[in-house]
Design a binder for these strands. Structure first.
Lengths: 147, 147
DNA sequence: CTTTATTGTAACTGATGTTGTTACAATGCG
DNA sequence: CGCATTGTAACAACATCAGTTACAATAAAG
């Protein structure tokens, strides 16, 4: 099973917000949905999660949406956590009722746990090491190169 | 979304096979299902995948099931790949039709790709570094300690 | 050669999660 | 006030998962 695209959509939306300039038209959920190519409600749901995580400020009605911090202070791990694509520490699911009468059944969970936690932590560390600013810089570089 | 428990069940089953002794009663799907605490068909489906990956030999009818290699020569990454919990290189799903008329839409996929691949590779490397033999040794150690 | 236990596989179910959609009340700017 | 927009609920369509029933194919044992 794949990790939900909520994560990539969230990074997309945050990139739009990070690159927004003072003079620009306000970024509404409709506009953002146009860039992501989805329904505005999908964007609003994700914005709700980013807001709950304290990453964005959404001013109701026609107030616009803004980052609460510099893109240099937002890691992709924070975004990943914000959109709850995976419950904390639960990337792998483990069969939960093995037979305790069998030595393997009794100990498999504990024997596997350390490895699964390490694997998950390794993935999260990679996300922690990338900042939103790096993504937007990369986007701008690619945009400049292709023009 | 979580990674399917097929992976942990497969490691459980392979541990049973690794710890099986010559004199023991044959490990049928029914017996293994008893240890995992699930339905025998679930076990047979997973055995089918492990067989396809060349990790086990299943002799039809009442012939028993065996590892084709030493547990020291089977990494958890091979098991992970065998049960196809995640299509190769596709742990993260990315929204696939961003708007090319927007600079962010046009470049977000490429900008994210390297990071997502690295994160996934970090996870897989951890699995590659653990052998089935380590799991069974750990199980035996825990079983000895609790007796 | 027949009996018997077992595997391999198809088909179906119920539960859950995702993405997209419609609908509409609440909000706050002009 | 009027209006664009947000926040949220409700629902549909779809996919995957885990469990189950059913049964033909297989091969070992007598």
């Amino acid at each position: 099973m794949q990790i939900s695209s909520r994560f990539s959509v969230a990074v997309h939306v945050l990139s739009l917000l990070a690159l927004q300039q003072p003079g620009d038209a306000l970024l509404t959920s409709e506009r953002m949905a146009g860039s992501v190519n989805t329904n505005p409600v999908v964007i609003r749901r994700i914005l709700g999660q980013l807001k709950k995580a304290g990453l964005v400020e959404v001013r109701p009605a026609s107030g616009g949406t803004f980052l609460t911090r510099s893109p240099r202070a937002i890691s992709l791990l924070e975004v990943y956590r914000a959109v709850e694509v995976v419950a904390e520490g639960q990337l792998f699911s483990v069969h939960d009722q093995p037979n305790p009468a069998c030595p393997v059944g009794r100990h498999i969970q504990a024997a596997l746990n350390a490895t699964l936690q390490r694997a998950q932590a390794a993935l999260e560390q990679q996300l922690a090491g990338v900042l939103l600013a790096q993504v937007t810089t990369d986007i701008q570089a690619k945009a400049a190169a292709s023009s």
